[in-house]
């Protein structure tokens, strides 16, 4: 079954039909907590992308050696290792980026999306497919976080990427964590509506 999936399909699937935030509803905690600005979304997205790709590939390589009854601890161990390595490398060689991304990278150990992709995909599929799936999921997460961040930053701080565009702050409420639930929920409904609408028009043709 793995052979009929091209790399492009795997990547677009992660962004659209199986988007981690809007479709799979995984890793909602960071989606709600951190997505207060577009920049936060991008930073966390990049961090997740790297950890997801590295972990997926690692698990895919060692999939035959992992005992099925201890697979979850092994996944956690793999993720923790890669998070630590990325954290150390960023701190040492990219201090500028680390100053902005540092706190996000450390959060990733507890992300459900990464463990779930290892369990659902990487432990069964070949290395190449796992790599592209990791990229797709990482990008999908990043796109979702950016979309939520865009709305919350615009409505909460009246700015986009830190640049003041509205000149005033419409609703301070949108910066608070509780508003994240509303934004995520509404966007989820919106994307589902698009999907339903799209399928219906297609079905009518």
């Amino acid at each position: 079954m793995a052979n009929d999936k091209s790399s492009i399909q795997l990547v677009t699937r992660g962004i659209l039909s199986e988007n981690p935030i809007f479709k799979l509803a995984l890793s909602m905690c960071p989606a709600v907590g951190i997505s207060t600005t577009v920049m936060n979304g991008i930073m966390l997205g990049i961090a997740v992308l790297f950890v997801q790709v590295f972990s997926s590939v690692t698990i895919s390589i060692f999939k035959n050696m992992i005992h099925p009854r201890i697979r979850i601890p092994t996944y956690t161990l793999t993720i923790a290792t890669w998070v630590t390595v990325i954290d150390l490398v960023l701190a040492a060689y990219m201090p500028e980026a680390y100053a902005k991304m540092g706190i996000f990278v450390k959060l990733i150990v507890a992300f459900a999306i990464i463990t779930m992709r290892l369990e659902m995909f990487a432990c069964k599929e070949p290395v190449k497919d796992s790599f592209w799936d990791g990229i797709g999921m990482g990008l999908g997460f990043m796109v979702g976080m950016m979309a939520i961040g865009f709305i919350r930053e615009l409505l909460g701080s009246g700015a986009i990427l830190g640049h003041d565009v509205l000149g005033f702050k419409p609703l301070l409420f949108f910066i608070l964590p509780s508003a994240g639930f509303f934004v995520v929920g509404l966007m989820m409904a919106f994307f589902n509506w698009i999907e339903v609408y799209y399928k219906r028009t297609k079905g009518l043709q």
């Binding site: 050696m65 992992i66 005992h67 150390l88 490398v89 040492a92």
Partner: peptide, 21 residues
């Protein structure tokens, strides 16, 4: 197996720490 994977993880992290500290 769990011990081996822990050791592998520790080696990777340890080496990384030595090179970057």
């Amino acid at each position: 197996r769990l011990t081996v994977s822990c050791l592998m993880a520790a080696t990777v992290m340890g080496l990384c720490f030595i090179f970057t500290s």
